[in-house]
Design a protein around this nucleic acid. Structure first.
Length: 492
RNA sequence: GGCGCGGUACCCAAGUGGUAAGGGAGAGGUCUGCAAAACCUUUAUGCGUCGGUUCGAUCCCGACCCGCGCCUCCA
């Protein structure tokens, strides 16, 4: 069964399949690089990644494009204030964004499209709209899209145009629009302002036009799926549809997927509420990248997720449990043969996992299928009923799980170390948890030396000394685990 | 005001017209110099309230209460 996804446009769950003979075309609304990405941004990108990875697991060829908006009003204001060109200003955040994607195990799409590298395509599209009478030039030199020319306006967000005219606000800068609802395609430059010189006159693109132009550039005038946060539904995506369909006469994206916002401690994340966190904030507090990723997938994309620090701790433990299970399987030592009931349960778990994701990417149910298998296999192993031939199929299910969820491989220490390096470079180490800084200041060799010292103390039955060493390391976030095979350490 | 979503155990959370997945936490246990880790077992006669439909509702319908999101830059 192929993937079935809720389609905002139709209000129904529909099968998502590419047009015959072509890879599935996905346009994903990406970040505006004016600052570091926050966890709300990454909830969206992680779920698009889940979609992407699941499609790949199913063998669907993909052509996935994500835009990077590297010119907009906020960027202009901030770069000017910093005395930098917009390129200089955005370069840092573009890089940071890509690092953050990698930290969270988010795969890069086939194409990353930067707005500033597609100005000609945008100008071309605007000219086409002018020719078709859907756009006009205002007195100040800006170009606007005439909403009245597009009867389908509102079909995505289910808005009634008539009712919206009332009380619509008119931007003082945009007094020359024919209708208050018309939106800017091209913003004429004010004297001294950064601009491109084009056939439309000096200026910069409006926000919506970049997505229409770049989606068309990479995916054609009609394509399969367009994704984004729920807030983008209106006006951004509605405007994209109006522009694109007016220019091409074709249906723009057939399928629209909107990821719901996450809440933080029950409220919408905002700087004024003090519940605003970037990924880097969380890493510096000592939370692991894998736990953050896992928490972001704990609730299906179509439901609100309430992000809490308790939840982060829970996710840390849940990921640990999965990793311990995988390690137990790899360690082996099972009796020969095959346990039939466990074998069947394994197959069932694999099927349930896939079926859950096929059903509108129900990540919660998919995870439940895996945890059920973990519990069952562990209890079989405890009774010596997990046998050698049970191992490969279970590992296979885990591999499929991880092809989508990507949390089993432990890259957490490396990611945290990068975050600390970044903080040091940015002079922000004071924002990091002190024990984290202390712990990472210890080299692996130094830790090993302390462990040897403790082992010697234990052998001499000097448990006071041994416990003191463990306690000291624990205060630096380093946990020692004694086991028959020796002492292992890990960062908490 | 318009549009929409949700209220399920201590916390998070999935789900179904036929009697409640999963995770975390707590408790008990195995193990252990101590500890940690790991693993096992266990925890909702009930799914916001009140009506209705039904042989039967947490799931369908209606009303109400509560929380939240979008409608403006926002993922």
């Amino acid at each position: 069964m192929p993937l079935h996804l809720y389609n905002t446009l139709s209000g129904q769950i529909e099968e998502l399949t590419p047009r015959t003979g072509r890879p599935l075309g996905i346009y994903a609304c990406g970040p505006t690089v004016y600052d570091y990405g926050h966890i709300g941004n990454f909830r969206t990108f992680v779920h698009v990644d889940i979609l992407r990875r699941f499609l790949k697991l199913q063998g669907t060829p993909l052509r996935h494009v994500m835009n990077i908006t590297d010119v907009d009003d906020k960027i202009m204001t901030r770069s000017a204030a910093a005395g930098q060109s917009i390129d200089q200003y955005t370069a840092k955040y573009k890089t940071a964004f890509l690092e953050d994607l990698s930290a969270l195990g988010i795969e890069q799409p086939e194409f990353l499209a930067r707005a500033t590298e597609h100005i000609p395509q945008m100008v071309g599209l605007i000219e086409k709209l002018v020719e078709r009478g859907c756009a006009y030039r205002g007195e100040n030199g800006s170009y606007y899209f005439r909403i009245a020319s597009f009867p389908g306006y509102g079909k995505l967000s289910k808005k009634d145009l008539g009712g919206m005219e009332d009380g619509a606000r008119v931007d003082v800068d945009e007094y020359d629009k024919d209708s208050a609802r018309d939106f800017a395609l091209w913003k004429a430059a004010k004297p001294g302002e950064f601009h491109w010189d084009t056939s439309l006159g000096p200026g910069r693109p409006g926000w919506h036009i970049e997505c229409s132009a770049m989606a068309t550039e990479y995916l054609g005038e009609d394509f399969d799926l367009h994704t984004g946060g729920e807030d983008l539904m209106f006006p951004h995506h509605e405007n994209e549809i109006a522009q694109s369909e007016s220019a091409s006469g074709k249906t723009f994206a057939r399928h629209w997927m909107h990821i719901r916002f996450l809440l933080v401690e029950g409220k919408k994340m905002s700087k004024s509420l003090g519940n605003f966190y970037t990924l880097r904030d969380l890493l510096l507090r000592g939370y692991k990248a894998s736990a953050i990723r896992f928490l972001l997938t704990s609730v299906p994309y179509h439901n609100q997720l309430n992000f809490t620090f308790d939840g982060l701790t829970e996710s840390t433990n849940a990921v640990e449990r999965l990793r311990s299970f995988a390690a137990r399987l790899h360690k082996g030592g099972f009796p020969a043969g095959r346990n039939i009931s466990l074998f069947e349960a394994t197959e069932r778990a694999g099927r349930d996992f896939i079926a859950a994701l096929e059903d509108d990417l129900n990540t919660a149910e998919a995870r439940a299928a895996i945890f059920e298998l973990v519990r069952l296999a562990n209890s079989h192993a405890d009774r010596h009923e997990l046998q050698t031939e049970n191992v490969p199929p279970i590992l296979d299910v885990l591999a499929r799980f991880d092809a989508v969820f990507a949390v089993l491989e432990n890259r957490d220490d490396a990611v945290t170390r990068l975050a600390l390096d970044w903080a040091a470079k940015e002079n922000r180490l004071n924002e990091a948890a002190p024990e984290l800084v202390a712990g990472y200041a210890l080299s692996a060799e130094a830790i090993d030396r302390l462990i040897e010292e403790r082992n010697a103390a234990r052998k001499a039955r000097d448990f006071a000394r041994a416990d003191a060493i463990r306690k000291d390391l624990a205060e630096k976030g380093i946990v020692l685990e004694d086991s028959p095979g020796g002492v292992r350490w890990r960062r908490k």
